[in-house]
Design a protein around this nucleic acid. Structure first.
Lengths: 138, 138
DNA sequence: GTGAATGCAAAGGCTTTGCACGAGT
DNA sequence: ACTCGTGCAAAGCCTTTGCATTCAC
């Protein structure tokens, strides 16, 4: 079974019509073994590089949000001006390299379990996200 | 010594001219014993409520960024659409209440020390930020 | 055929910029 | 006086929206 066929199935199974554009974006995001981080901007560039026909910006936004909603992508926000999406949706954390503005994964098993000694009545923890900013030693 | 006098000194000491606008914003942000979280939007509203003369939006942005640069404010980013400033610049973490979109402090001593078993060659850790998203139990 | 998705351009929200005017030293 | 800060409106950037067209089922 080709990769595209899988994506078509995956899309259909999650209630998203497997359009040409969505399949293309799947191929770009999910074809590699390795997961990676991207901004909308970078994704648009990848699409341009990867394909002769362009995908409308609105469609790129729609698709990324649809994928995020379905849980195929995770958003990592650095600050009001910078936000990334991550094709790795498993539980994990990030280094943020201040010098080149890139993210590096920290796998869950690379962090000692985080214990918070504070509770908010009536609330439950939905997620714990650790962002470790790093910079060059001198 | 009045609070204003202190602010004037503090501003001058950090190389910021103690203008009427900056003093006003200091009064709003740093007069209370308690620290708090705010968005630019909320700050603008506080200024309106607190003062008869308005401060230009550009000045509010300039001032907040100047204060952040001087280390009097810390920025906490939730996602690409939401970012807060914190008058508490000490080492600490946050709960983010998904239901009402508000931040709650988690003091450093309320979290067991975070240990990361991963190093990036040539890099040093600048900061560790924990964001714990919480929601209503059912 | 019908509803969903796409593409385009326009609109929107938030933030920054440019420049003349005003205020602090 | 000189420089820095402010205010305003305009420009910018990123994202969303509206609507006609196209596509999947």
């Amino acid at each position: 079974m080709s990769a595209s066929t899988e994506f078509i199935k995956k899309l259909r199974d999650s209630g998203l019509r497997p359009t040409k554009q969505r399949i293309k974006i799947c191929e770009i995001l999910f074809n590699s073994e390795k997961t990676f981080h991207f901004s909308i901007n970078k994704l648009v560039k990848l699409i341009k590089k990867n394909s002769n026909e362009k995908i409308s910006l609105a469609t790129v936004y729609n698709t990324v949000h649809a994928f995020k909603k379905k849980g195929y992508l995770k958003e990592i926000s650095i600050n009001s001006m910078q936000s990334f999406f991550d094709t790795n949706t498993s539980n994990h954390h990030h280094f943020y390299n201040l010098d080149n503005k890139e993210l590096i994964d920290i796998h869950d098993h690379e962090v000692e379990p985080i214990k918070i000694n504070k509770e908010i009545p009536g609330k439950r923890i939905k997620s714990i996200e650790l962002l470790v900013k790093i910079e060059n030693k001198n």
